[in-house]
Design a protein around this nucleic acid. Structure first.
Length: 328
DNA sequence: CATCGATGTTGAG
DNA sequence: TCAACCTCGATGG
């Protein structure tokens, strides 16, 4: 279920709570027993998200590649990061990348920072999927695996249980490169200029409707059905417009807006796709899903801007919501 | 308590 | 184009 922002948050969780720790890797469910054996006992050295895919590197040269698909989730327990400390981690990750890639707008390093911001008791528990949900504390560490756990990553201080993924495999470095090469730019991985250039050059040449291009992970990474509908509305763009008929400056603006929404989603832990709200409206939107979006899931309801009923149509098997008056 | 549908992708036909 | 994957909250009886 998760769109790009949640996968980045999960990678941040691994970076904060698992990287640098030796991990006992197992497959309580059994379906990943062979893969788990190859990683068991290794130390995690990198946690990286590209679009909706996550890559965890271990010090034996192998990587765990996970895609949560429609209903996958990670359950974390122990000394783990919860809530707002995540934004700090993201900034640190961006600063680290700066030294490698020199993206133009990487924030300054905030310097010394560590588990201090976690501040969570050893027994806290959180489920991270499309949303995050704190759950009842565990009584003892580690907790027994509950239900169908494909992979368990257990360190001295934290445990992560993966359930329901669409993809869970062990790759070597070349395999990771191949997987990433298939993906379009991710604003939190690629520099603003390179990312936008790649998106514009690919999307701007295709006859495919822009509403489908935004969902194509080889064109741009991390956008799902909610962000797709909302980005198109925010640009007042008809979803059926062929990519090669969207003006270049509009494509650039779309990518820039995706960058903004993704960063906001990583910081808030929620998809907030509306702007210009009062403080009270914003707080309300964060609490209730129904007040959070311009068009998504609003079929038959009046457009928040013009009052026309929002329409829904099926596009490549997914529900596409849009305003036929504003998006022309 | 049974059924439905979902913020996703793959692969069969 | 559509079922399958295999989870779980929301919905309805």
């Amino acid at each position: 279920m998760p769109e790009g922002h949640s996968v980045h948050r999960i990678a941040n969780q691994f970076e904060q709570s698992f990287v640098g720790h030796r991990a006992a890797v197992s497959s309580p469910q059994g379906r990943f027993a062979a893969g788990a054996e190859r990683l068991d006992g290794a130390t995690m050295v990198t946690a990286k998200a590209v679009g909706k895919q996550m890559f965890l590197e271990f010090d034996n040269g192998l990587w765990l590649h996970v895609h949560l698909g429609l209903y996958g989730a990670w359950d974390f327990a122990g000394e783990i990061a919860t809530g707002h400390s995540m934004a700090e981690s993201r900034r640190r990750r961006a600063a680290t990348r700066k030294s490698e890639n020199a993206p133009e707008n990487a924030p300054d390093d905030d310097g010394e920072h560590s588990m201090a911001s976690i501040g969570a008791p050893r027994t806290s528990r959180v489920r991270m999927a499309e949303q995050e949900k704190a759950e009842d504390d565990i009584e003892s560490f580690p907790p027994e695996p509950v239900g169908q756990v494909r992979v368990r990553l257990l360190t001295d201080t934290a445990v992560g249980d993966l359930r329901g993924p669409t993809k869970c495999e062990v790759l070597d470095a070349a395999g990771v490169d191949m997987a990433i090469a298939k993906l379009g730019p991710d604003p939190l991985v690629d520099s603003p200029k390179k990312g936008a250039d790649r998106f514009v050059s690919v999307a701007g040449k295709k006859r495919t409707p822009i509403g489908l291009l935004l969902m194509d992970q080889s064109v741009v990474s991390g956008i799902g059905n909610i962000y797709r509908a909302e980005l198109l509305f925010r640009a007042r763009l008809d979803p059926h417009t062929p990519g090669n008929q969207v003006p270049e400056e509009v494509l650039r603006a779309l990518y820039k807006d995706w960058t903004k929404l993704l960063k906001s989603g990583v910081e808030l832990g929620q998809m907030m796709t509306m702007d210009g709200l009062t403080k009270a409206q914003h707080a309300k939107a964060l609490r209730s899903r129904a007040d959070r979006h311009w068009v998504y899931h609003r079929e038959g309801l009046p457009c928040r801007v013009c009052g026309t009923n929002i329409v829904m149509e099926m596009a490549a098997g997914r529900k596409l919501y849009w305003c036929p008056t504003d998006q022309t």
